[in-house]
Write a protein that binds this DNA or RNA. Structure first.
Length: 484
RNA sequence: GACCCCUUCGUCUAGUCAGGUCUAGGACACCUGCCUUUCACGCAGGCAACACGGGUUCGAAUCCCGUAGGGGUCGCCA
């Protein structure tokens, strides 16, 4: 198994892992967990003594695991740029190692077989609940003679956990957290059908994979106690834990599927850039003084667990959007063209012509200033790709009344007489016209905008005119003058 | 219910570990103005918070205790 890298415990190299269960898409909370794990490993790879980021698919629940979900996780991580080392590990594929660990525990007397029926367990659970106890299983098979085992009943295997004292974890984010062992019952390691439970699999896999730092959502905090007990029973070093707070929805409740915990693919489809999503997610719970705009390079250099906050954060769509606007403005026209091109064809119903693509490339720098998402950018770009006669919105239509039409005719003659079809010449021409006619520039600029873009909002009309070129511009103006 | 965690502007947060430099800083959102052919961008300014109550101290957002509120976990799910 080549993915199980050799990581001697005596060096300082860091190994992190992201361990999602493939029961759905990669949601935004999982993405943040992955990001933190990735950042931590990359930081140590580049600025420390080595770092590795592994991906493990927790697919031991066969009924709920699908290949589609696995692919969705891969796609999501790749889109965010969170590449993992080696091949993704299937937890299900390591079932033999899990069983072997239990055998050892059984031999060492650190685990035992439990023949309780689901009914018995149900009763115990109910009793514990009404008695106000957290601990459910009463340990009735813990010290019982195996000879008492009922025949024909397949046992589950439980860990013989310490009954006294307390289990303490030194969490890198939460600090020292301790819980009395009396609160923890003997967890099941192997189900009665012989399959390993999550608790067992996680511990064995994390050990075998050489994981040094377990960074995950704090909904796993209580699991950490049980896992610590297991690590100790197995005589293995316990990895360092870092439980990060969960992301909450805008209403303050836990992010769930109905509370906006969308898959990262949805953010992509809504026109967000991966670097914006990463930057936003990074700032949710982690900070570096007052820095807000943080590149991945800086994030890798600066990231640490000390600066991760403990309190949960609400998801703020507006801030993500603002960040996205920033990264959009920093993107070059070629990249933007690649990004919007598929949707553009969809809107148009055909692939934009070569000349339309050229216009777009020239027009994108002006367009990107006015968009916060790719979707917005696409909508605003449409007029560059459109074929004559372009459609005119109702609002724009209102600008082309009798006055507007008259001005368009005059200014069109001026344009036609121009030697240089440049932004500067175009602007001088319109300025001269408005001064001569003693009207505000807007009175003529807006009808022009309406004619050449079909809308009331666009980049500078001189820029648009220049990008469109003489023939197309004059043609579009003529189209509206002759309309009706 | 039990156990554990959390609590600074509406939101994300700086500051808290080493108490005074905090009349609490930044960002998003919101409001005003400037720029201007529209809309943005940009720039300038504004509104807005230390959950509450005790205590320690010359002095507390920072330390301690309590209260309230919020969250997580209590599966032969992961």
């Amino acid at each position: 198994m080549n993915y199980l890298l050799e990581h001697p415990r005596n060096n300082m190299s860091v190994v992190t892992r992201f361990a999602p269960s493939p029961t759905g898409f990669l949601h935004i909370g999982g993405a943040r967990t992955a990001l933190f794990n990735w950042l931590f490993s990359q930081h140590h790879a580049l600025h420390g003594d080595g770092g590795t980021f592994l991906l493990r698919i927790e697919d031991t629940d066969r009924k709920r695991s699908t290949q589609d979900a696995v692919d969705a996780i891969f796609d999501g991580l790749r889109w965010l740029g969170l590449t993992w080392d080696g091949d993704a590990i299937s937890q299900f594929g390591r079932i033999e190692q899990h069983r072997a660990a239990v055998e050892r525990l059984l031999d060492d007397g650190r685990a035992y077989r439990c023949y309780c029926t689901p009914e018995e367990l149900g009763a115990m659970r109910k009793e514990a609940r009404t008695a106000g106890r957290k601990r459910m299983y009463d340990g009735r098979w813990r010290d019982r003679d195996p000879a008492d085992a009922p025949s024909g009943v397949a046992p589950a295997v439980r860990l013989k956990a310490p009954e006294d004292g307390e289990t303490v974890i030194e969490d890198l984010v939460q600090g020292e957290v301790r819980v009395a062992n009396a609160e923890l019952d003997d967890m099941i390691l192997l189900r009665s059908d012989g399959t390993p439970t999550y608790m067992l699999a996680v511990v064995v896999d994390d050990h075998d994979m050489g994981v040094t730092h377990v960074i995950r959502g704090d909904d796993h905090l209580t699991n950490a106690f049980r896992q610590t007990q297991l690590f100790q029973a197995l005589n293995w070093d316990t990895p360092a834990f870092a439980h990060i707070s969960l992301i909450h929805g805008p209403d303050g409740a836990k992010m769930s599927k109905r509370h906006g915990a969308l898959g990262v693919d949805v953010y992509r489809d809504q026109g967000f850039l991966p670097e914006a999503v990463c930057n936003y997610l990074l700032r949710l719970g982690w900070s570096h003084r007052d820095d807000e705009i943080i590149s991945m390079e800086q994030a890798i250099e600066w990231f640490n667990l000390d600066s991760v906050g403990k309190s949960p954060a609400r998801f703020d769509f507006d801030k993500l959007t603002a960040l996205n606007g920033h990264y959009l403005r920093e993107s070059g026209p070629e990249r933007l063209m690649d990004l919007i091109s598929p949707s553009l064809s969809e809107y148009l119903g055909y692939n934009p012509s070569e000349i339309a693509v050229q216009r777009l490339i020239h027009g994108l720098p002006g367009l990107r200033e006015r968009a916060k998402t790719l979707s917005e950018l696409i909508e605003n770009s449409l007029f560059y790709a459109a074929e004559r006669p372009i459609s005119i919105s109702d609002k724009a239509r209102k600008l082309i009344d009798d006055d507007g039409r008259r001005r368009l005719e005059s200014v069109k003659d001026g344009f036609a007489a121009l030697d240089d079809w440049t932004e500067e010449a175009l602007e001088a021409c319109v300025r001269e016209f408005s001064e001569r006619a003693d009207i505000k520039m807007g009175k003529v600029a807006q009808p022009i905008r309406a004619a050449i873009t079909g809308t009331t909002v666009s980049p500078s009309i001189f820029e648009v005119l220049a990008v469109l070129g003489r023939e197309e511009s004059l043609g579009r103006i003529a189209d509206v003058i002759n309309f009706e």
